[in-house]
Design a protein around this nucleic acid. Sequence first.
DNA 1: AATGCAGAAATTATCTATAATTTTGGATCG
DNA 2: CGATCCAAAATTATAGATAATTTCTGCATT
Lengths: 222, 222
Amino acid sequence: MAKGTDDTIAVRISKVLADRIISGAIEPGARLRQDHVAEEFNTSHVPVREAFRRLEAQGLAVSEPRRGVRVAAFDLGEVKEVAEMRAALEVLALRHAAPHLTSAILDQAEEATKAGDKSRDVRSWEEANRAFHRLILAPCGMPRLLATIDDLHAASARFLFAAWRSEWETRTDQDHRAILAALRQGNAESAAATLGRHVQWIGRKPIRTASGATREAFAIVG
Amino acid sequence: MAKGTDDTIAVRISKVLADRIISGAIEPGARLRQDHVAEEFNTSHVPVREAFRRLEAQGLAVSEPRRGVRVAAFDLGEVKEVAEMRAALEVLALRHAAPHLTSAILDQAEEATKAGDKSRDVRSWEEANRAFHRLILAPCGMPRLLATIDDLHAASARFLFAAWRSEWETRTDQDHRAILAALRQGNAESAAATLGRHVQWIGRKPIRTASGATREAFAIVG
DNA sequence: AATGCAGAAATTATCTATAATTTTGGATCG
DNA sequence: CGATCCAAAATTATAGATAATTTCTGCATT
């Protein structure tokens, strides 16, 4: 992964901050103070502000004019919303990608699935899962659609990490295998239908809050 | 239309530029020079750069690091892509909005349809059409989905204005009426199906290029 | 005539400084 | 004791200036 030495400073900052927000290192609702960030990266606040605009566009931060920018909050409603948007858009992408899928690509996707099944922590499972989806969708050749899906995946990952902060139980992903089987048989519609259901699978999990009470956490697990 | 006096300057600039790009006042591929824009708006270039980031996020501009930003180009492929994304997402939004639609809203939507049918120029037709879609979709209560659909509408409008720069023939929108009728009968699925087909209706039109040759122009007409 | 190089001009990216706004802490008053 | 208001501090927004990069232009060379 090229760390983009030719990237502008603003892009580099936005990538680092995006990673922190997604991983949960910065809490939802936390303020992002431009001077603090600027100091950390040894820059002025101007590129920091541009980085904030990028995060805003991705839906990872929200800004109120003259009141600063803070990490976007999210609730069960947004988890559902993202799941449904992903279902609609990934199905569309897969329908267009299917004719261009080679067995080489499908083999790679199978490898990604196996890697996910073997993962012993959320982070590597998420990475493998994202790789699977990207592999089978990328050949659709629709850049705008893929960019939108990427942003939704970032949001999904955030929900996931918020719920399964550390514990993770390995599980074999039957959906991924069913999708691959259907694609190998040239049955794009069946694959798309499974994918549509798959990404709407919302996992539930009780987590302990800081105050000691327990509440349910939700995340897209597909 | 609140011109947002409390908006930040960057937001104001981005709105004006977005309007120019959508209307075709600035050609696709044209460079956006920050100092020139800054001079025009009597500001420094810093808010201009932030405005550029916003346009980029909306897909109206593309930027290459250290080489500046230019108005995004588009081709038939992207017109189709946007049409399909709109179909997928607007159908989703309508399914969620349907239970919350009141007859008052549907009446307003019918007014918008009539206004569109009476329009004698592209600009006012587009405005009425957008109002119709927004009215029936907004009650879905999914802010992220609505924001994405808005961006797609902006892109659609751009395609439309590029093709039908001035001439426009009035026509009665049967699809809008069919959608409203289905919604009034509580048949959300039928309305959604019609909407899905409706926004994928791509108009074709021969236009004369600067060099005198004719080529086909395409636009989403729904 | 085409190609390549050098210097100039233009443009972008960043930094430092200033102005404006909001938040906060504390003192005063009801 | 609590609410309100004012002043100080913190933070954001913008401006003006500087450094670095790219693009342009003209001239020399093949």
